[in-house]
Design a protein around this nucleic acid. Structure first.
Length: 556
RNA sequence: UGGGGAAUCGUUUAAUUGGCAGGACAGCGGACUCUGACUCCGUCAAUCUAGGUUCAAAUCCUAGUUCCCCAACCA
């Protein structure tokens, strides 16, 4: 299977066969139904891409964005806004189909009355504790509530009073009347409405009773005419309930299909645990570039294209596994390589003096902005007698395989000249402080026709033109591949080196005017972008991801 | 001897539905290179186990093993 062909998966197979049998009048309609109780992360991106890409790939396919906002105590407008921004940023379009479950509250209420009138639901006065105790366990059957056989009239009346606010939180609930000895716990008279005197971000104080997920979700799907309701594996046990409600009411019946959620090594995906990282200040916020949130990835410099490519490459299946984060890195680099503007930045500078270069001379040398993309054009770089190069690009006593600078060795300065090391100076503590070289004027532009071979090519920045900047180098947030293995002790696996702040970076002068939302490749160092903290007088770059480094790997 | 799911290279995902187990990532080796990047080439490597049916089994049958999910008035 080639990269550009859409891989089939079991969900698309189901849709294909439904289309073939004419099941839904040839419609394909999915939805992404987030609860606005937190920020979206890369795991949600898998679901977003799955649902929206199906809509994009099938003729007349549609995908709704629907907020499943049935629990006002956990949900906030802030999350609604961030979710909308994130889905949009990923490049998806729900057209005019932005919905809220809370917009269906009246209809959901009437459906509940219908269920009561069918004798399939009752108001229960028992406490939450009692309901839990009488539900039974995995092996023991549950027992019926003493209120289970109230008359339809009484149930209708009491349900109306629940809605009217005549009871306090927890005093009563509405339960479906199914089977307290069902082998599936979800079918043991599940609660479908609870009393919550709480302001709702979308409906204000209009309601004081709120539907539970199981009651609301299938009906939301039904109301919107969803054909394939795709959710994660843990809802498999809920599918009998999903089907039961729809069957009892005799309404349009979408098909729920479950797939395995995304897990990534070296990261955590649980909203609760991510929130703890934020609350306990282990990271700077939800959009900290180390977070697996969409907003974190965006700030880090990930592109929507790379995330979408990742989503299609990981595929969709029912087996739950752990994806190697190296695949995400690969998708990122692959996309960035095509689009990133090449620039020269020295992260750990050491001074080079070209002893045979005129002291006051400045030459403007041509450099291409992106060898992968001719249209990116060229820029000028100032070359002078004193330059910075990377400290790791010089060795006092280099091994044979070291292609960079050392005493007597010749290397190429990218876009500039060949230089040969003639001498170096060390400080008292043994650090190299200055490297002396001569340049060959005949190699201007970085090339010689005489057949000379130079293995090493170094990046550099003119000392007098260099711009100072702060560069934030990120690594995995955790230093073990499965930080959640020990439950809540995941904090102990935080990688202390997940953020290294470098304040001595030297930028080529054009970067003084670096643009936001632009991906750069710092030559030989990795991909970087301007951080939100950056200011004119204090430039801050994030390292999005390093380049592959087969040399560095060999050194270990 | 509660119920619901899932098992294919290290990881992930395919296999025209009973017909040569393929790809991607990772690893390793090499070529190329004005980025030790990119690109290209090569290479390593898998059907949970045991039986059975069949000319032929990842696929069908039987028995077993391992892993995941479920006991919120969360979603």
């Amino acid at each position: 299977m080639t990269d550009n062909k859409q891989q089939s998966n079991f969900i698309r197979d189901i849709i294909d066969s439904d289309l073939e049998s004419g099941k839904n009048d040839n419609r394909v309609h999915t939805r992404f139904p987030p609860e606005p109780n937190g920020y979206l992360h890369i795991g949600h991106a898998k679901s977003i891409c799955l649902n929206f890409c199906i809509a994009e790939d099938y003729p007349n396919g549609k995908c709704n964005l629907r907020f499943d906002d049935t629990n006002p105590v956990k949900e906030e407008e802030e999350y609604v806004e961030s979710i909308i921004e994130d889905v949009k940023w990923l490049g998806f379009d729900w057209e005019d189909r932005l919905y809220f479950a809370s917009d269906y509250f009246q209809q959901l209420y009437e459906y509940a009355e219908q269920l009561i009138n069918a004798g399939k639901a009752y108001v229960d006065d028992q406490s939450a504790d009692t309901i839990r105790d009488t539900r039974g366990t995995l092996k023991e059957l549950g027992s019926n509530s003493p209120y289970r056989n109230r008359s339809i009239e009484e149930n209708i009346t009491l349900f109306g009073k629940m809605k009217a606010g005549e009871f306090g939180n927890g005093e009563k609930v509405l339960r479906a009347k199914i089977d307290m000895s069902h082998s599936n716990l979800n079918m043991r008279d599940p609660v479908i409405y609870r009393i919550l005197h709480a302001d709702h971000h979308h409906t204000g104080n209009t309601w004081c009773i709120y539907p539970m997920y199981d009651w609301a979700h299938g009906l939301e799907d039904s109301i919107e005419g969803i054909t394939h309701s795709i959710c994660t594996l843990e809802f498999e046990d809920h599918r009998p309930l999903y089907d039961w409600f729809l069957d009892q009411l005799g309404v349009y019946h979408p098909q729920q299909i479950e797939f395995a959620r995304l897990n990534l090594n070296y990261t955590i995906m649980s909203k609760r645990k991510l929130k703890r990282l934020v609350d306990e200040h282990h990271v700077a916020g939800w959009d900290d570039p180390r977070m697996p949130t969409i907003s974190g990835l965006r700030r880090r410099g990930y592109t929507p294209e790379s995330i979408r490519e990742f989503a299609t490459r990981i595929g969709v299946a029912k087996r739950d596994g752990v994806i190697d984060i190296a695949l995400l890195d690969h998708c990122l680099r692959d996309d960035l390589n095509k689009r990133a503007l090449r620039v020269m930045v020295v992260l750990d500078p050491v001074k080079v003096i070209i002893t045979n270069y005129p002291e006051e001379q400045v030459e403007e040398l041509d450099a291409d902005n992106n060898p992968e993309d001719e249209s990116a054009g060229k820029r000028k770089l100032p070359f002078t007698r004193e330059l910075y190069i990377e400290r790791s690009d010089f060795m006092e006593d280099p091994p044979k395989k070291f292609f960079r600078l050392g005493p007597g060795r010749e290397v190429r300065l990218k876009h500039a000249y060949y230089i040969t090391c003639t001498n170096f100076i060390k400080s008292e503590n043994g650090d190299v402080t200055e490297i002396h070289c001569t340049y060959d004027p005949a190699t201007k532009g970085g090339w010689s026709d005489d057949g000379r071979k130079v293995r090493g090519t170094l990046h550099w920045v003119s000392v007098q033109h260099a711009v100072d900047a702060e560069v934030r180098l990120y690594d995995h947030l955790f230093n073990v591949d499965n930080p959640e293995a020990d439950g809540d002790d995941f904090i102990q696996h935080l990688n202390p080196d997940s953020l290294i702040i470098n304040t001595q970076a030297k930028l080529e002068p054009g970067l003084q005017k670096a643009r936001a939302n632009t991906n750069y490749q710092f030559l030989r160092n990795g991909y970087f972008c301007l951080d939100a903290d950056s200011a004119q007088e204090n430039i801050v770059f994030n390292r999005t991801v390093g380049l592959r480094d087969s040399w560095g790997k060999k050194q270990k």
